[in-house]
């Protein structure tokens, strides 16, 4: 049953990706990205990653859609047709994709429990989380306690990215003439 639901949701993801590639209107692309994020959140729920699904639904479909729409408002919302042929990128993509798919047959089938990733650190976290931290949600206890260093690094990355955006956008606004390329003084 789970495999069936997964198959349907993943097929929908692939269909939306194809539409995103072909679509020229950037507004439609942004909205489809939001749809894509909600579908991805559903897939993550089927995969038992409830915390990740919640993050994906609020971040991917919420905040990043708003930011993309804001950028469209500030720039342009139409993609121009490409003058150059798309043969080489297609060749690169198909080549890499083919090689990777040939490699997947060495991977364990979906949902199997006897793979290495289930037998190393994860059972210890699952067994000791309540005893050591009194927190039933293992994702939270691993995130904030067992791997607290990692999360601190991630917080610093978010901090850095935020500072970068503020530096780029809150600085003095300069305009350049489109013909001569020289700076226009004053607003």
């Amino acid at each position: 049953m789970i495999v069936l639901v997964m198959t349907v949701l993943l097929t929908l993801l692939a269909v939306i990706t194809i539409v995103i590639i072909r679509q020229r209107s950037l507004f439609a692309v942004v909205i489809l990205t939001g749809v894509y994020s909600f579908l991805m959140a559903s897939v993550l729920i089927v995969l038992d990653a409830v915390d990740v699904a919640m993050t994906e639904a609020s971040v991917g479909a919420g905040v990043s859609t708003v930011l993309l729409l804001a950028t469209l408002y500030l720039t342009q919302s139409r993609e121009y047709p490409q003058p150059r042929p798309a043969i080489i990128p297609l060749f690169v993509a198909l080549g890499i994709g083919g090689a990777l798919i040939a490699g997947t047959f060495g991977l364990p089938p979906f949902g199997s429990a006897d793979t290495p990733i289930h037998n190393r650190t994860a059972p210890r976290y699952l067994a000791k989380s309540i005893e050591e931290t009194t927190v039933p949600n293992v994702v939270t206890s691993v995130l904030a306690d067992y791997r607290g260093y990692d999360t601190m690094g991630e917080t610093v990355v978010i901090f850095t990215a935020g500072i970068g955006v503020l530096l780029l956008l809150l600085g003095r606004r300069r305009r350049y003439s489109s013909e001569t390329g020289e700076e226009i003084q004053g607003e």
């Binding site: 915390d51 905040v63 927190v135 039933p136 949600n137």
Partner: peptide, 12 residues
Amino acid sequence: DFGPGGGFQAGV
């Protein structure tokens, strides 16, 4: 601590 969620999701 008891269900899905945490600081990241709440902040967003």
